[in-house]
Simulated assay, not measured.
Amino acid sequence: MLVYRGFSQTAPSATVLTVGNFDGVHLGHRALLARLKTAAVDAGLPAAVLTFEPHPREFFAPESAPSRLSTLREKLELLADDGVDLAHVCHFNARFASLSAEEFVERVLLGALRVRHLIVGDDFRFGARRTGDFAMLRATGARLGFQVEAMDSVTLDGERASSSAVRDALQAGRLEHAARLLGRPYSIDGRVVHGDQIGRQLGFHTANIRIKHERPPLQGVFAVEVKGLPGGPHQGAANLGYRPSAHQVLRPLLEVHLFDFCADIYGAHLNVRFLHKLRDEMKFPDYDALKAQIARDVAAVKQYFQM
């Protein structure tokens, strides 16, 4: 997949395009991307996505913006996995936010992305003060020579598949439900870094994984699968949070105790898939109590994998 940042370079050819934040790339997004790929193959053109960084809600109201489901890198990897040929990452700033709906169509969709066929969600709004909508796009497309179609929402047992629904499920510890909305287990990527060796002192070696999520959508102790190591995926128990009982950290830290695996993996880039939540983080009075709880957690996770 080719990735362009900004609009200094125009698309290499006319495109079949969709536009959105695609946070988490859930079942609704994936249905839209499947339709995009089909239309692109039919037209003999690349399947292209326009997405934004940061998320517009982070720009307009950073204090109340929701947790991100995926970093930019994770999102681009997921888009590539779903067959996208070309991704344009728009830096969402005051200048871009001030574009009128008409300017967005003429300068971005037509000028930079050379859109021939546009596919959007049924709730798509755009332009300054969100004045642009599907009716405006369809009328403009008829006038300027590009086709526009809308995708209906995807529902699962009556619930609309959305980033908000996935986020709510993760925050509530309903990981299996989140996986159904995503079409895969929720995962976080990160690189293994050196830690303070607390896990080793407690008898449970851990891989300390630096993540780029400022506010991950879930915290606690989990059963996980880890991809990115030889012979994987590997099963393990993970803690994601701030370690209130051992050298509390200011940024969230992901620590994974891998079962039946022992190797130097510093620097490895791993993908951690969250399968089941055991409990929230807890503060323990001393290391003996913490060690005893970790032993119970590891036993519970192993039992989960045996079910």
Score class of each variant (00 low, 15 high):
Arg273Asn: 06
Gly190Met: 01
Val3Ser: 04
Ser13Ile: 03
Ser8Gly: 06
Phe134Met: 06
Asp280Lys: 09
Leu86Asn: 06
Ala34Glu: 11
Asn239Arg: 10
Val41Lys: 07
Gly203Ser: 00
Phe22Leu: 10
Gly20Pro: 09
Ser245Asn: 12
Leu17Cys: 12
Arg114Tyr: 03
Thr15Ile: 06
Arg73Tyr: 08
Tyr266Val: 13
Ala14Met: 08
His194Gln: 09
Tyr304Lys: 02
Asn21Arg: 05
Glu103Asp: 13
Glu214Trp: 10
Pro252Ser: 14
Val154Cys: 02
Gln201Glu: 12
His257Phe: 15
Val41Met: 08
Ala179Thr: 02
Arg251Gln: 13
Ser100Val: 03
Glu106Ile: 11
Arg143Tyr: 11
Pro233Ala: 07
Ala207Val: 06
Phe284Tyr: 14
Glu214Gly: 14
Arg167Ala: 09
Phe22Thr: 01
Phe305Met: 00
Ala142Val: 03
Asp157Gln: 15
Gly190Ser: 03
Arg138Met: 13
Ala43Ser: 12
Phe126Tyr: 09
Glu281Asp: 10
Ala65Gln: 07
Val166Trp: 01
Leu175Glu: 01
Leu253Asn: 03
Gly203Val: 02
Leu175Pro: 00
Val19Phe: 10
Glu58Ala: 07
Asp122Asn: 15
Glu255Lys: 08
Ser187Ala: 15
Leu27Ser: 14
Arg130Leu: 08
Val226Glu: 07
Ala31Met: 09
Arg180Asp: 02
Glu214His: 12
Arg279Cys: 04
Met136Trp: 11
Gly111Trp: 01
Ala165Lys: 01
Gly241Thr: 14
His194Asp: 00
Pro230Ile: 08
Gln235Arg: 15
His247Asn: 15
Ala139Ser: 14
Gln201Pro: 08
His247Arg: 12
Ile119Asp: 02
Val154Ile: 13
Gly220Asn: 09
Val84Tyr: 05
Ala223Ile: 10
Ala94Glu: 13
Gly183Met: 09
Ala87Cys: 15
Leu109Asp: 05
Leu218Ile: 08
Ser164Phe: 13
Gly141Leu: 02
Asp264Glu: 14
Arg73Lys: 15
Pro56His: 03
Arg30Gly: 00
Val49Met: 07
Ser164Gly: 10
Leu202Trp: 04
Pro216Arg: 03
Val115His: 05
His234Arg: 12
Asp81Asn: 07
Tyr287Gly: 02
